[in-house]
Amino acid sequence: MLKYSKSEKVFEIFLYIILGIIAFTTIYPFIHSFSISLSDRGEALRTGWHFYPKKVDLESYRRVLSSSQIWIGYANTIFRTVVGTFLSILFTIFAAYPLSKKYLPFRSFFISMIFFTMLFGGGMIPTFILIKDIGLYNNRWVYILPGIANAYNTFVMINFLKNIPASLEESARIDGAADIKVLFKIVIPLSTPVIATMALWNGVGHWNSFMDNLLYVTEKDKFVLQEVLRQILIQDRTDSFAALLKTVEKPPAGESLKMATVMVSIIPVIIAYPFLQRYFEKGVLLGSIKG
């Protein structure tokens, strides 16, 4: 085995410490906010380190979970994540499959047409006017439909489909399978790795986005979770919990309520995280292949 000199060993110890500090700064905020979310008023307002909740009080969770706005946000976010991810992958395949065939008429025209959208866009205001004109304003489908046209994903998918051996499809065709059957029985099952990775990107994107809500939706019953969170966390509006605040003698601190909201919103991501991890590296590398 390798023998390191003294300076090399010191260097390695230094790296362990530096990397440890970096990892600490990314993990600690979540530990801290988890502790605050479970702490009673006095403990939550104490300045300093919070590695674990000292005086446990579940009151903030009780309040957050009894707030109807959180549940509305949750329902809308789950809707857009599930339906949105499904539809955008389905339509990405629909666009990419014919375009992966060299013999498609006008292929290069369609490819350039999709490609151009990566270079140039109408911008925020014309998009806003369009959304209003076609009746998607204050409509839950605004979270889903515009995202279906995703040039980047389409090109990644085209690249992947190009590499499926044509002989597999031909033999199915000889057996009399129609195009649509070839797609669903052969092409899609062979593409599960790319579909899984794309579903991961898409799903996380849907879960975390709020900009379309901010721009196009003003009715509170259609808000997504991130917008509900934004109003509580960034705009400091804890008034949706305020009605309940007077009922106990020692109400939880505002911080606890906020951190409990954070926890409630990120728990699905944290639970999914270990399962998603194996797709990470694949996913990043997938995007770096030339189109």
Binding site: F91, P98, F120, G122, I129, L130, A149, D179
Partner: peptide, 27 residues
């Protein structure tokens, strides 16, 4: 199968058409 292109036309090219309001007084 090119149904997906409809989405590009509406949501990517639609706003590009709207750019002309930069040369107008939109109301």
């Amino acid at each position: 199968m090119l149904s997906a292109l409809v989405f590009y036309i509406i949501f990517c090219y639609g706003p590009m058409y709207g750019i002309i309001i930069a040369f107008k007084d939109f109301n």
